[in-house]
Design a protein around this nucleic acid. Structure first.
Lengths: 109, 109
DNA sequence: GACGTTTATCGTAACATGACGATGAAAGCC
DNA sequence: GGCTTTCATCGTCATGTTACGATAAACGTC
């Protein structure tokens, strides 16, 4: 039913995605940023205008379930991580992931 | 095959400049780069390993019609432009579009 | 005009995405 | 225990994406 162990650390592991060829890594990151709502979410999190799902829902014209799905996409791409804080979850951006995307783009040529 | 490889002035026309909000512009560019095949295409074009659709088809495990569709996506996002050269079309990357994407990413924070 | 070359488009099928409301699960508080 | 808050997940529907083969369009050459 419930999760067995829960290491109470937040910003450890990037994502399940590892050891990808550069073009796959780039595509994966770019795809996650390839929706306006997700770009807005990343913006909001970076600007620290709240970090919970509910905060984001308040600032986007989307249902809570939809926002949650977008958060999942960003999480699976390693762009954000979520730290459980009681009943709520504080999301934050892994700036290194964004920098990695920039790096991959600049290395393209 | 022919490999004329003379794309010295194939990057003339600017893209369909659109007035998008930054998050939309970012999402649009990122989405276009959000597929491994399209990343490979951009790589190939940047490295000047041929510039025609046929050249790309030879280097990807995809049908010609599929490659053509990917080229269309990249073109509509303003990432590449195609210059007609007789019966063939020489595609090349608008490096400014990639730089723009980098810029938008770095401005996110 | 007929031919070969190159690319785009059409039609189609399988699958993925984005959106919603409703429900479920986890944590803290009374 | 019961309640509230917060978020994830489920079911569903509409739409978009990706892939293919087949066909059409544009161009230069003969």
């Amino acid at each position: 039913m419930t999760m067995k162990a829960k290491p109470d650390d937040c910003c450890l592991p990037p994502a399940p995605a590892r050891r990808l060829k550069p073009e796959q890594e780039l595509a994966r990151l770019a795809k996650a940023m390839g929706h306006p709502a997700r770009v807005r979410i990343v913006q909001l999190l970076l600007r620290r205008e709240g970090c919970m799902c509910g905060d984001i829902v308040d600032q986007l014209p989307l249902a809570q379930s939809t926002v949650s799905q977008h958060l999942k996409v960003l999480k699976e791409a390693g762009i954000i991580v979520g730290q459980t804080e009681g009943p709520k979850i504080c999301y934050c951006v892994r700036r290194e992931a964004l920098r990695r995307l920039e790096e991959l783009l600049s290395e393209l040529a």
